[in-house]
Design a protein around this nucleic acid. Structure first.
Lengths: 135, 135
DNA sequence: ATGCCTGCAAAGCTTTTGCAGATGC
DNA sequence: GCATCTGCAAAAGCTTTGCAGGCAT
């Protein structure tokens, strides 16, 4: 059984063509951050008849299952990326739109500390740096 | 001349009733983070006939003029807050929706360093901690 | 056979825009 | 008086949902 099928089963989802295809696309794409529309276009390029509504439904299910992550950058549509289990944050170039991933243990630690100091548990965070090429 | 009028003039905007009222609302509201809809409702409560389109237009102008800041928390509408010149980030309680402001000099410094290390200048950032009451 | 899944189209929600009239300077 | 501003309504952009039929198990 292909790897994708196992991942879907493990997530409690039936193995259907749209789900397998979308998972494959997310696994093979070069720029790992895609919008629902990007995925929809990739499916059409591959001659697959999948509706945009299904794309959104599948992405929502994948996110709930922990297979992917959804990010809302400043304006514009949400982007999705495969969850490879290595947490990271994002840097977005305001001139080219390029997305760079990074991770910093100190920032993570400080966030935990700040939440605690305010009487809360940290359940998630969103950190996006907006940058432009060094002048 | 009222303070609001001066601020508008300084921003190069004509002193009109919708602009003055919206600025006053943002200055006086207790919870400093409001959506466009919140502001629209506040105007209607005050019997002011201002359209929602004007609210959005004025907020966009205020943001461009540096009078206010716009934030996009996870989903849902954007929230606006007066810019008091003290930069801060936000913590949002996932159970109550409460917004807490915080500032951490170390995080700010590390962000600068990360951008530089990647060959970029930092032009802005968005950091939101999602938290829940300590269990 | 059954219940989950899908495509289509329509609706939903937030935000933007075109236009004709109103207002500030 | 003239440019800017405003309200209204319509449109735009992204995402969700209702429904009738289709598919996996």
């Amino acid at each position: 059984m292909p790897v994708e099928d196992q991942e879907l089963k493990k997530a409690g989802l039936k193995v259907t063509l749209p789900r397998v295809k979308i998972l494959q696309i997310l696994e093979n794409v070069v720029d790992r951050h895609m919008t629902a529309e990007d995925i929809y276009q990739a499916l059409r390029d591959a001659e697959e008849d999948v509706g945009i509504a299904t794309v959104y439904r599948v992405l929502t299910q994948f996110e709930a299952a922990g297979l992917i992550e959804r990010h809302n950058f400043d304006n514009g549509p949400a982007v999705y990326e495969l969850d490879r289990g290595e947490h990271h944050d994002h840097m977005v170039c305001t001139e080219t739109g390029k997305v760079i991933e990074f991770h910093d243990a100190d920032i993570e630690k400080i966030q935990e500390r700040i939440a605690k100091q305010n009487g809360y548990d940290l359940v998630g965070h969103s950190l996006v740096l907006y940058v432009k090429p060094k002048s």
